[in-house]
Amino acid sequence: MSLDTATVRRVAALARIRLEEAEVARLQAELNGILGWIEQLRSVDTEGVEPMAGGAPRGGPTRMPMREDVVTEGNIRELILANAPDREGDFFAVPKVVE
């Protein structure tokens, strides 16, 4: 599989990364290099193999732990908003979204 420039642009759009025209060809070459190298996985026989979804080895957690239904956090608005690049009153602010 080889990425064309349209795919590079589509992927960048999905990932919300603005690409300058000059970057497209370079990225296309790099990504194709990486994907070409990854292609070798196709030759592995994985018939009937259960995919490994998490990182836990044997002996690690096999089921998610559950928390009790207790309110333990909140009322930290100033801390939540402290790093905001744009804050309006008690809200985060972003460029207006037209629905």
Binding site: D69, V70, V71, E73, G74, N75, R77, I80, D90
Partner: peptide, 27 residues
């Protein structure tokens, strides 16, 4: 209906002041 959120310990009550029922996980 629950007191706390699905994956955090912040409250779920309706009508609270903006951004007061928010944990660092939620944000």
């Amino acid at each position: 209906i629950s007191k706390a959120k699905l994956f955090s310990g912040a409250a779920t009550a309706f009508g609270a002041e903006p951004n007061t029922q928010v944990s660092f996980v939620d944000a």
